[in-house]
Structure formats: C-alpha cells, structure tokens
C-alpha cells in the first residue's frame, strides 16, 4: 500500500476534494476540451492570455482524483507565468511522470504528481489537463483533444 500513499498524497486528496480555479473564465480568449474516452474523464480548460502572459487559467469537468488534482495544481502553477515559462513547467511535469531527471525548482509543488510513474495506466489521467492547456495555448479557437 506504500505506493498508493505515494500516489494519493494529502495534496492530491485535498485538490481533488477542493479543486482550485474550478470555474469558467467569462472573458477567456483560449479554450480547449480534454477527453479521456477510456475512463470518461472530461474537462474544459479556460485561458485568458495577455500577450504571452497567462493572466488567468481555470478548468471545469469531472474525472478521477488524479485528473482533478492535476488540473487544479496546474492552474495554480501556471497563473501569472509566460507561455515560455509554462512550456518549461509542462516539460518538467512530463519528465517527472516518466521517471526522468527533473529540475525541482521549476517543478515545485507539482512533484506530488510524479507518484503516477509507478502506475503506468494512470499517467494519462495526470497528463490530461496538461495536454489540454497545451492545446488551448496553441489554438485561438475552441478545440478538442483526446488522450488514449
């Protein structure tokens, strides 16, 4: 059960129960739908970009604890960052989930997500919101992405 505690850490449980930035952004100028058809996780990521700065980022949707907590932590981490900074964080998160060497300063609190590396079937739960925000940044119209 020790791996389980590693996966379902207190931070994850807390963000699952009380997801941060769980709302629509009325004046969002970027938006993307993320969908994991295998387990039914669905979310929408809203972005308000001011030039290359992320003014506001939020999400709505439903899914497992890992996908909800990951989305919630993501919004906290990316708010106020530039697109380049967001990209760097995204890469660190991805590395942490696949067991690669990471930059702890950049990763910060997001390190709790690295617990999924022991659970290959769950990696896509944790990456869904990150893929979705990536798609939202790259596109200036409403787009849908799907993991699986």
């Amino acid at each position: 059960m020790s791996d389980l505690r590693e996966l379902y850490q207190q931070v994850i449980m807390d963000h699952n129960k009380r997801p941060r930035n769980f709302r629509e952004i009325e004046k969002a100028n970027h938006l993307a739908h993320g969908n994991n058809p295998l387990c039914g996780d669905k979310l929408v990521v809203y972005l308000k970009l001011d030039g290359d700065k992320i003014d506001d980022v939020s999400f709505k949707g439903s899914g497992c604890a890992i996908s909800m907590a990951s989305a919630s932590l993501m919004t906290e981490a990316l708010k106020g960052k530039t697109i380049d900074e967001a990209q760097a964080i995204y890469e660190q998160v991805h590395k942490s989930m696949t067991g690669e060497e990471t930059d702890r300063n950049l990763l910060g609190k997001l390190e709790v997500l690295s617990g999924v590396k022991e659970f290959p079937a769950r990696v896509k739960c944790a990456t869904l919101s990150w893929h979705t925000v990536h798609a939202a940044i790259d596109s200036d119209h409403d787009i849908s992405i799907s993991t699986e």
Binding site: M1, L4, L7, L38, C39, A65, I66, C125
Partner: peptide, 22 residues
C-alpha cells in the same frame, strides 16, 4: 466520493482485479 478509476487502482494494489469504466 471515489471515482471508479481510482477504485480500480486501489483494488489492484490489493491484488483484486476488477473492471472500471463504461
């Protein structure tokens, strides 16, 4: 309060194989 996908992972950690999903 627990999503079925989390249930599946936690069960598997105890050797119990079930299906979760649609």
């Amino acid at each position: 309060g627990v999503h079925p996908h989390d249930v599946g992972t936690i069960f598997d950690q105890q050797g119990v194989a079930i299906r979760t999903g649609h």
